[in-house]
């Protein structure tokens, strides 16, 4: 009986997919317990309202684990193709693995948007219609410029994982941004023995600030490192003179921005990534719209004293 019911349900679902006239969209995302991808889910859910209002459907396909990463992502793409969706929103995490499958999707007439990872060049190469996400380097430049606009001339970018391409791009962006504006910046690469040891990171930053009295801005490559940096800056007795910034958000960082011991945080605004990617794709499929803006950058969004209250409200609603 149960089997029969499932069969009927499956047939009904197939019927819906093949007969619906509006866009059926599949979105591929990370694990359930990954906080970032739950913000993405909020964007998918909100975009779904628009898509369903026009008679379409949105299906959020999530990875169960990250242990068998590339094959699992490819499997999800194959699932989407076999469901005969009209549109696919996918992060290009592992180009080597995903590219052939994405090309297969475009060859099958599925419209694709790359989201979160990949970049516009990759999107063009694969025949995707756009890239919606952030660019680490551009985000870094915005951070560097923010320091200069707030009167800081000498910025230290603390990198706890030197060598990771995306993090190096963040620091390079910060250094280029402040340098072009007229200031100076340098990177502080920390040895692997300090990673995950909040005290070691804090003490490294404190020692560097004490040794180089000219530094008036510190930025960390992750929200967790900013927690250590805040203590390091305080222990160097420089909470007043040194502006602290970070990439990414967490609760304690937002609390510091609220009470004034941290200057700002750079957010890639994941909610916008899925919200915009899904609605953009649905509109392209249903109405033939073509957005000339590409790539569509969702970051950097800078959170500081000016918008902290609205940001905190967004955190409460699962959108930040």
């Amino acid at each position: 009986m149960a089997f029969k019911r499932i069969l009927i349900a499956a047939l009904a679902a197939t019927a819906v997919v093949s007969t619906a006239s509006a866009a059926n969209i599949a979105v591929i995302g990370g694990k359930n317990d990954d906080a970032f991808w739950n913000i993405i889910k909020k964007g998918v859910d909100d975009a779904r309202l628009v898509v369903e209002a026009n008679g379409g459907t949105v299906n959020y396909l999530r990875l169960q684990t990250y242990d068998n990463f590339a094959p699992d992502v490819v499997q999800l793409i194959q699932t989407a193709i076999s469901q005969k969706v009209d549109g696919l929103v996918i992060p290009n995490w592992v180009p080597e693995g995903e590219d052939p499958a994405i090309k297969e999707a475009t060859a099958a007439g599925i419209k694709v948007i790359l989201m979160n990872a990949g970049g516009i060049d990759k999107a063009r190469e694969l025949g995707a219609i756009n890239y919606v996400g952030s660019d680490e380097y551009i985000a870094g430049v915005a951070g560097g410029e923010y320091f200069f606009k707030n009167g800081k001339k000498n910025v230290l970018c603390v990198n706890t994982v030197p060598g990771a391409a995306n993090l190096e791009a963040r620091c390079k962006g910060v250094i280029d941004g402040i340098s072009k504006a007229g200031g100076a910046g340098k990177q502080l690469p920390l040895p692997a023995t300090s990673f995950g040891d909040a005290t070691a990171v804090a003490e490294a930053i404190k020692a560097t600030l004490l040794q180089d009295g000219g530094i008036d801005g510190v930025i960390t490559i992750s929200a967790g490192d900013a927690d250590s940096a805040a203590i390091g800056v305080m222990q160097a007795g420089k909470t007043e003179g040194v502006l602290l910034g970070t990439f990414d958000l967490n609760q304690s960082g937002l609390d510091r921005i609220k009470d004034g011991t941290q200057g700002f945080a750079i957010d890639q605004q994941p909610y916008l990534q899925s919200l915009l990617a899904v609605t953009l794709l649905a509109s392209a499929i249903d109405f033939g719209t073509d957005l000339p803006t590409s790539p569509l950058l969702t970051g950097p969004g800078i959170v500081d004293k000016g918008n902290i209250d609205a940001t905190l409200a967004g955190v409460g609603k699962g959108a930040r």
Binding site: D197, A198, D227, S228, S252, D255
Partner: peptide
């Protein structure tokens, strides 16, 4: 208590260190 925050991704370096 000191850093006012607890993080999942910490501590692994303590093994080797």
């Amino acid at each position: 208590i000191l850093f006012n925050v607890a993080q999942v991704s910490a501590g692994m370096t303590f093994i080797f260190n």
